[in-house]
Amino acid sequence: MSRLVSVLVILFLFAPLIATTLISFNATPTFGFPSQGLSLRWYANVFARPEFWVGFRHSLLLATLGTLAAIVISTLTAVAVVRFRFPGRSLMNALVMSPIVIPEVVLGLAILVWIYAVLDMPGAWALYLLHTILVIPYIVRMIIAGLQGYDINLEHAAMLLGASPFRAFLLITLPSLKDHIMAGAIVAFIVSLHNFTATMFLVLNRPTLPTAVYQYIRTETDPTVAALSTLLLLIPLSVVAVGRRWLGLDRMVGR
């Protein structure tokens, strides 16, 4: 019984991915099946349409900068929260984790209203800010877990061998947290790359990949997006590969 449900669930989850892959090779501009001949024209179209490439570069940039900023902020925050006891510690922990439970429309609209009403800040900055806020919980949670499981004696040993506290952390502790930081960064990168709802509030005339795809789906009905979707499967495939090889899949899904 549970085996049957499991198979059906997996099939249900994979059906959209399988369907897009099948359709992407259609020769005709329809979503029909069985297809009338095979073709790679939609793949060619992905590269012919400038908005996908523009959106992809924008998304990569956002995800990269947001994730890098979040790694730095999260590492410092995790050190403070794990290594020190101070007033406001649990409040701080709750605050950096809170974006995960704030509805995206709330965050997106709040920043939109704030930026234009209060600061009159250029829009590009607002997106970087949003994406950094969005991904911090995923990284900070991972680094806190890493620091809590870390043997502090290693850092002490380094200090007693003559390393300053900063060097001991940099040369001994940080390399030990490498896997946790990597796992957090990968999840964060993908969350940022795929973010749609909050991002929609702050994209102006420069689309991200999801917003470009969304516009395309709304205006065109041909399998170009299916071809793009098939190409983009490389991303989760490489996540699974990296997760299985080095980081552990359990950790990737936040457990």
């Binding site: 989850l13 059906a15 369907a19 749609f196 969304y214 979707s229 989760p236 299985r244």
Partner: peptide, 27 residues
Amino acid sequence: SMLVLVFFSDYLLRMFGLIILLGRRGL
């Protein structure tokens, strides 16, 4: 691995896949 693969594939594109599946002339 299969679940992680689905989970880390683009949500928007999975919705597009459902259009292909569920549409009037869909799969």
